[in-house]
Amino acid sequence: MTAKVTLSFSDDTIEEARRFAKREGLSLSAWMDQAAREKALREVFTAHADAVNRAGFDLETAAVADAREVAMVDDVLFGGRPRAA
């Protein structure tokens, strides 16, 4: 499913995005979609790491134990599709 939206970016931002998209062989839309998804994942995992730290758990041990949570987040964000590398 795809939603069409109108967005505004600074000239510098859009030029950089176009350059990165071209370098990666993606359309600007695909690159922006991937960038937004990656940002969402960073937000989710940063919040999780903060919660783990507040609880006093060892982050390395918690990361190993969280493989199921990673799969659930992937499923929500990517709908069962593999995420972009």
Score class of each variant (00 low, 15 high):
A36I: 10
H48Q: 11
N53A: 09
V52A: 14
T46Y: 01
K39M: 07
Q34C: 05
E43C: 04
Q34M: 13
H48I: 12
D50A: 11
M32P: 00
L59I: 15
T61D: 13
R37A: 11
E43H: 07
L59K: 12
A30K: 13
A40N: 02
A47M: 10
H48R: 14
S27Y: 02
D33L: 07
E43Y: 05
V52T: 15
K39H: 10
Q34T: 12
D33K: 08
V52Y: 06
E38C: 02
G56W: 00
W31Q: 05
A35L: 08
W31L: 03
R37M: 12
F45D: 02
D50P: 01
S29W: 01
A62N: 06
D58R: 07
R42W: 04
R42E: 15
A30W: 01
A51H: 13
A35Y: 02
N53R: 13
N53Y: 00
A49W: 07
T46D: 08
V44N: 04
L41I: 06
L28Q: 04
E60L: 12
F45M: 13
A36L: 11
N53L: 10
E38K: 06
L28C: 02
A49V: 14
E60P: 02
R37Y: 05
R42G: 03
Q34F: 04
A49C: 09
L59P: 15
T61M: 08
F45W: 10
D58K: 10
G56A: 07
D58W: 05
S27E: 03
M32Y: 00
D33Y: 03
D58L: 05
E38A: 12
E43D: 14
A40W: 02
E38H: 05
R37H: 10
Q34H: 08
A49F: 03
Q34G: 02
